[in-house]
């Protein structure tokens, strides 16, 4: 898939981190981790489902069995990985810029 031929798979964390720094998340009064998490979760999960739909193979279930995971847990796991990576990336970038006020401002909103 194009870009990842040259870049390591985790390189997408860098732009996410930068976005965390640059986007006016504070002004929008949104929780950077939660929004990052949701965005990442949806991106990974929906892309997976999209590829499963457009391709004609059937491998995800066998693969879950190989890894000794219940097949229905595979998709939530994919979402979770995407969510955590993006959430943490966005949050780190955000904190680099707005770190000082974090405790009083953001934490309550994460709930």
């Amino acid at each position: 898939m194009g870009l990842f031929d040259f870049l390591p798979w985790w390189s997408f964390s860098v732009p996410v981190f930068l976005l965390g720094m640059l986007l006016p998340l504070k002004k929008w009064k949104v929780s950077p981790f939660l929004w990052g998490f949701i965005a990442g979760f949806m991106a990974w999960l929906l892309s997976t489902i999209y590829f499963e739909l457009i391709y004609d193979g059937e491998i995800m279930k066998s693969v879950a069995n190989v890894m000794k995971v219940k097949p229905y847990l595979l998709h939530p796991a994919i979402g979770l990985i995407g969510g955590l990576l993006t959430g943490l990336g966005l949050y780190s970038g955000y904190l680099l810029r707005n770190g000082r006020e974090i405790l009083e401002l953001e934490l309550p909103k994460i709930k």
Binding site: M1, F4, W9, A43, W44, S47, T48, Y50, F51, E52, Y55, I59, M60, V63, L74, A77, I78, I81, G82
Partner: peptide
């Protein structure tokens, strides 16, 4: 599990 390069 990466949707863009992984097993899917």
């Amino acid at each position: 599990l990466n949707p863009f390069i992984g097993v899917v």
